[in-house]
Design a binder for these strands. Structure first.
Length: 209
DNA sequence: CTACGGATTTTCT
DNA sequence: GAAAATCCGTAGT
């Protein structure tokens, strides 16, 4: 399977977000490949987007990596306890990113289970299986993604994205999650997901029209 | 299955 | 000092 190249990332966040669905996220941990299929993402559009960390061109230590070239990881701590993984997109100087919100475990299930619940995969309850990677903080825990991954080169050997299978699927769109502060950008349909996939974090019921 | 509140600490004002 | 791109347990329907 082919690795996604830098040109893919060097485009508009909305475009990249949609095309990331169905691709495989890989993190090599202790020599083993942990692999998940991306099923839910959100586009953050940079300076114009009131929901983005880089809104208004804000440039702090935390968001610095978004100002660099495309194809690098932006990892930050949320609510003091969880990590969120983003893919930096667009050209250098234009700070856009795609938040990875949900994924389906493909390979390395035992290791993911231990990282997240400290249990064997077969010991997991149904609810726990779904909770392995069905949220931004959850998938970082299962894939052992933390602050040390901030700035990682996605065109490198440790953390990267593969093209994935060419199976067709339907894409859903909705408003982004937990950005009530973003005023007129709150309702923008910039969250994308694979319809009917159980590892999508929310919106399986009423929110989808 | 939905709703709510608490946990916990980095980041920025 | 307040907010934050979240998660989990508990209680209720």
């Amino acid at each position: 399977m082919e690795k996604v190249n830098r040109e893919f990332y060097n485009r508009n966040s909305l475009l990249v977000a949609k095309e990331l669905l169905g691709k495989y996220l890989v993190h090599v941990v202790g020599g083993e490949e942990l692999i998940c299929k991306l099923v839910e993402v959100e586009a953050y559009m940079g300076p114009e987007d009131k929901a983005a960390h880089s809104y208004g061109g804000r440039r702090t230590e935390r968001v610095e990596v978004m100002y660099g070239p495309a194809g690098y990881a932006y990892v930050y701590i949320i609510y003091g306890m969880y990590y969120c993984l983003n893919v930096v997109v667009e050209r250098e100087g234009l700070p856009q990113a795609v938040l990875i919100r949900g994924a389906e475990p493909i390979k390395g299930l035992e290791e993911m289970s231990k990282l997240r619940f400290k249990k064997e995969y077969k010991e997991l309850k149904k609810r726990e299986v779904i909770n392995l990677t069905s949220g931004p903080g959850k998938l970082c825990s299962a894939l052992n993604i933390d602050k040390t991954c901030n700035g990682a080169d996605l065109c490198g050997e440790n953390l990267y994205i593969l093209e994935g299978e060419k199976e067709p699927f339907e894409i859903g769109a909705s408003a982004r999650v937990n950005i009530d502060y973003a005023e007129e950008y709150r309702e923008k349909p910039w969250r994308f997901f694979i319809k009917d996939n159980p590892f999508v974090s929310k919106g399986l019921n009423k929110k989808i029209k």
